[in-house]
């Protein structure tokens, strides 16, 4: 029996979660929300995390109704992510690990998403579409690694959505992607946008440049409404993701698809993926915002898996790194 606490703060979400043998005891989160038209910057985001983490930690312990002495292992996000926010959160994890005298486990953020997705949905060996503000990867497990079959060759899909929302000055509350999703429901007229798929890789930067250059012109002339643009953007980028995922599952002969990451909450993306899956007799697994969006539990759970498989980390190796590839991690807990 392992009780594990996880600290996550690689981007603008700060999360602390506690899990006991795959059973979530608490999952607390606080999001740093910026005004419309602005993105989150490392320094301000780090300050947000520093100001809130102790309160969030208390909340997580109270909700889980356990004492610090009952915790077996402390886990934190080692990377990838923004330097400042990562370090601010790791500092707290290191401090409590020493105060409580518990082992400290550094966790890869992307692997955290995958393992949490597998736990919640019960999927066994899925092809994973990991889509968030900083990541766009199509991943499948083989030979002790989560291997990246396809990914973005420039910006991440969530980044494309965020920046698109900034151009239109949409609200960042609760998230730019959510507001685009709601607006897109009223969109009718389809604007052809650059559609770039290279094998299993995708590219989004061309779309952004296109909207930057022509978006306001279309809005002014009334040719397309804001909703039309949101609709066209979603239809285009999600079609690219579904197409490459389909190519990956055809390539590996897989019959399970799992969507994880913040963009994975998008109902339209889930719906499109579901249609593709049912055409191929495959099954789609997706989670809701509690686990799709960055959270502490996924770090706690993955750390617990690592800990149970015998993983140990020297104190001097418990650092953070902004760049940390999914396929860098040896998966010791899977056959």
């Amino acid at each position: 029996m392992v009780i594990s606490i996880g600290f996550e703060g690689s981007a603008n979400k700060l999360g602390v979660g506690i899990i006991k043998d795959g059973h979530v005891l608490s999952n607390c989160r606080k999001t740093y929300i910026t005004p419309p038209g602005e993105g989150f910057l490392p320094r301000e985001t780090a300050r947000h995390h520093q100001n809130n983490i102790v309160k969030l930690l208390e909340e997580a312990l109270i909700q889980a109704n356990i004492k610090s002495s009952e915790i077996d292992v402390v886990c934190y996000t080692k990377g990838p992510g923004m330097g400042g926010p990562l370090v601010s959160v790791a500092l707290v994890a290191r401090t409590v690990a020493q105060l409580w005298n518990k082992p400290l486990i550094p966790v890869n953020h992307c692997i955290g998403h995958i393992e949490m997705g597998r736990l919640i949905t019960g999927s066994i060996n899925p092809t994973v579409l990991y889509v968030s503000g900083g990541n766009t990867q199509i991943i499948a497990y083989s030979n002790k690694r989560y291997r990246i079959f396809g990914e973005t060759i420039d910006i991440a899909v969530g980044n494309c959505l965020d920046r698109f929302a900034r151009i239109l000055k949409l609200s960042n509350d609760p998230s730019p992607g959510y507001n685009i999703e709601q607006l897109a429901k009223c969109g009718k007229k389809f604007l052809p946008l650059p559609y770039v798929v290279k094998g299993m890789d995708v590219s989004f930067s061309g779309i952004l440049t296109f909207i930057e250059e022509k978006g306001h012109k279309y809005l002014k002339s009334g040719e397309y409404t804001e909703a039309d643009l949101c609709f066209s953007l979603q239809e285009t980028i999600f079609a690219m993701l579904v197409e490459t995922t389909e190519r990956a599952i055809a390539h590996c002969g897989s019959n399970e698809v799992l969507i994880v990451g913040g963009v994975g909450c998008n109902k339209r993306l889930q719906n499109m993926m579901d249609i593709m899956c049912s055409e191929r007799q495959a099954v789609l697994y997706a989670t809701d915002e509690r686990f799709c969006i960055d959270n502490g539990v996924m770090i706690a759970y993955t750390g617990a898996l690592m800990y149970s498989s015998g993983f140990k980390c020297k104190w001097e190796d418990t650092f953070c790194t902004q760049r940390f590839r999914t396929d860098d991690v040896e998966v010791t807990w899977r056959e």
Partner: peptide
């Protein structure tokens, strides 16, 4: 990029 796509297809599917 064409070569890169091939490399990734090879290393991900035929990692041995």
């Amino acid at each position: 990029v064409d070569l890169y796509v091939l490399e990734r297809a090879l290393t991900s599917k035929h990692s041995n």
